[in-house]
Design a protein around this nucleic acid. Sequence first.
DNA 1: ATTTTGACGACCC
DNA 2: TGGGTCGCCAAAA
Length: 122
Amino acid sequence: MTSYRGDEDGGDASRTRILDAIRALPAGSVAGYGHIARRAGLPGRARLVAWVLRHNADPALPWHRVLRSDGRIAFAPDTAGFREQVRRLRAEGVVVTRGRVRMPAAETPLDLALWGPPDAAS
DNA sequence: ATTTTGACGACCC
DNA sequence: TGGGTCGCCAAAA
């Protein structure tokens, strides 16, 4: 409680919710930044998700399951991060072609079963 | 206080 | 599929 207006989460809670949403990603699945933001109750804050990931220090976080909305890896192709992400994804059975992944139409039946409807924030 | 930057996204052609 | 524009939010310069 960094002391301020009670209604304000101070972005701290937002950060937590984002990390939470990412941790909820099933192995072998992928999601876009915007998708995560939405799941975290922060529609339109895709860039905030990116910011959180950039500042993330938790090695257990499945950050590699987060891609751009077009299924493309966010890192530049010639970076270590890029290669690392491809490596991790493939290790989970995800098909990565030319630094890009086949994105689920939107909500695969499986996702709905695991995540429930978009509104029912867990 | 203004500008630039970034692990973004929806649109348009 | 690919490239460019504009909108968006928070941080850093």
